[in-house]
Amino acid sequence: MKILVGYKRVVDYNVRIQVQPDSSGVVTDGVKLAPNPFDEIALEEALRLREQGLANEVIVAAIGPANMQSHLRNGLAMGADRAIHVSTEQAVQPLTVARILLKLVAQEQPGLVILGKQAIDDDSSQTGQMLAALWDRPQATFASQLSIADGKATVVREVDAGLETLEVDLPAVITTDLRLNEPRFIKLPNIMKAKSKPIDTIELSSLGVESGDHLQAIRYHPPQARQKGVMVKDVAELVEALKAKGLL
């Protein structure tokens, strides 16, 4: 079984994001970029399935500009067998991403597609569900546990009410939550090995994907900041302050 993993590059989660003074976007020039943390969890899970003998090939895919190659080398160094780079200078929205992934699915015929539950830049949380719909296959989102046997996946999902377990027929799309696993660190020898692993580059325009970029971002703005409050010296003063506001 092949596993296809979505491997998006985003602004590193430690970066304090700033809105451009002219409201046209957020500042990304010179900002540290990193793999989307949920996608690293997706890749880790795929690697573990391969290590258990449940998969024989793990493919990472990313969409973006030419300099995406070094990002994909990260995924290869972590342990993916090969990479697909869908090359475009344009930012793409989730529906377009799902349509692109559907093309890769048709080409690669994976038994499983694992994606992060959301990317930490646009926080949309849509792509996996959209891909599953277009592919007409099951989805199991927000996974915190995954096991595979007899052509089926049993997935524990983190939902608002608690933990939900689903059984889905393969192929299927799984999206990862935080507690699915802890991604491994990349070891130096693997960085060397990754240099010889193949990266296929496909021009987005050659895939014949109809754009789903229907939404227009008009203006970016910073959120309203909360005012820093006051420090109280002890419990009595705190209780008094809360009583004064009618909260106790």
Binding site: R16, D121, L215, I218, Y220, H221, P222, P223
Partner: peptide
């Protein structure tokens, strides 16, 4: 909200 709420974006749908 985007970026964990560190920025907001105004979106227009067709």
């Amino acid at each position: 909200p985007i970026y964990a709420g560190n920025a907001l974006v105004t979106i227009e749908a067709p």
